[in-house]
Simulated scan of single mutants.
Amino acid sequence: MSEHPESADLYSAIEESARLLEVPCSHERVQPILDAYADSLPSAVIALRVATGTRYQGDLDWRFTVGREVDPYAVALSNGLTGRADHPVGALLAEIRGNCPIAGYGIDFGVAGGFKKIYVFFPPDGMQSLATLAACPSMPRSLADNMEFFARRGLDDRVNTFGIDYRHRTVNVYFGALPDACLTPEGVLSMTRELGLPDPGERMLRLARHSFGIYASLGWESSAVERFCFAVMTSDSASLPVPLEPKIEQFLRGLPNNAADSRFVYYAGVSSTGEENYKVQSYYNWQPRMLDQMLLSDSGTTSG
């Protein structure tokens, strides 16, 4: 397959970001992803994300949006980006497409590891209910097992994004328009303790107060919520109490950026492994429509 101009230009930025973080960049894994979705790239929101913690060492994630008219899993299969899964994860996107209105999709990949995830964005005025999602035959049972937990906190009908991780065979459920009670230190501790997760540290509790979204990671192997995370947007990468390694701070200062304004999304979470993780997402190409998708206005960003 020949390279498209848009995907070739983006690959150069991806390669530069990998060099800055000193991680390997695999042309044979990355370029086919960009070429497969090349028609979407000129109008896409494009971002990259770096994370702390042993789970994320040795790779750097990039992601971009594609339109709702695209079947992103079919594209991935037909271009050999992922193998056909003999597992319910392979049928899940088609079932969601058949049952829910969709605003668009996102593709997530590592510069070293290649294709990883597909995100499903629901319309801002059409957030989905957990009951609708849990009714999909291939959905992990863990979602239904935790519905009552989310319903008691007013989150059962506030799913604005859903992620499918084909590599790890897990799903992410993203909630928006959060009730204030979910963001207080007491509310956060109540949730993590009921889920059997470690108590977040003081820095994470302070950050959670500013969250525009939370998400939970679940799998097919057990009913446990594997990770529970909070997301905060800011215009200043140094404004929040997030303990980033000096190497990552230097990386953020040197990033390629085509966006007209600077925006960063921080993710802070606790996991069943006992590890506290922080991730920061920087936008290579920002589109204002993402504020609607995130259920945010410009005033919804924080400076600390």
Rank of each mutant, 00 (worst) to 15 (best):
K116G: 01
D125A: 12
D125W: 06
F122T: 03
A94S: 15
A144F: 06
V111P: 01
A151Q: 13
G106W: 01
Y119K: 14
P124Q: 13
F115D: 00
Y119C: 10
M127E: 12
M147A: 14
S129I: 04
S138E: 09
F109N: 02
A131W: 09
D108F: 14
F150M: 05
N99S: 15
A103L: 09
M147L: 13
A134T: 04
G106R: 00
P124E: 13
G98T: 10
K117M: 13
A94E: 15
C100I: 04
K117C: 07
C136S: 15
M147Q: 14
A151K: 13
A144Y: 05
G98W: 06
A134M: 05
P137M: 13
F115R: 02
G110M: 02
F149L: 13
G110I: 02
G98K: 08
P140C: 07
S138C: 11
M139I: 05
S138I: 11
L143G: 02
M147T: 13
L130W: 01
L143T: 02
P123R: 06
Y119F: 15
S142N: 04
A151M: 10
A94M: 09
A151R: 15
A112M: 03
Y105L: 13
R141M: 11
G126A: 14
D108P: 01
P101M: 07
G110C: 06
D108E: 15
A135E: 11
R97I: 10
F150N: 01
G110N: 03
K116E: 11
K117W: 04
D145T: 08
C100M: 14
I107V: 15
G126L: 08
M127S: 09
A94D: 15
A131N: 10
V120M: 08
F122G: 03
P140I: 03
R141T: 12
S138H: 09
G104C: 10
V120A: 06
F121T: 04
L130I: 10
R153T: 03
P140D: 05
P137C: 13
E148F: 04
F150V: 00
P137F: 11
V120H: 03
L133M: 09
A134P: 01
M139V: 05
G110Y: 02
A151H: 11
A144G: 15
T132P: 01
N99C: 13
F115G: 02
A112T: 06
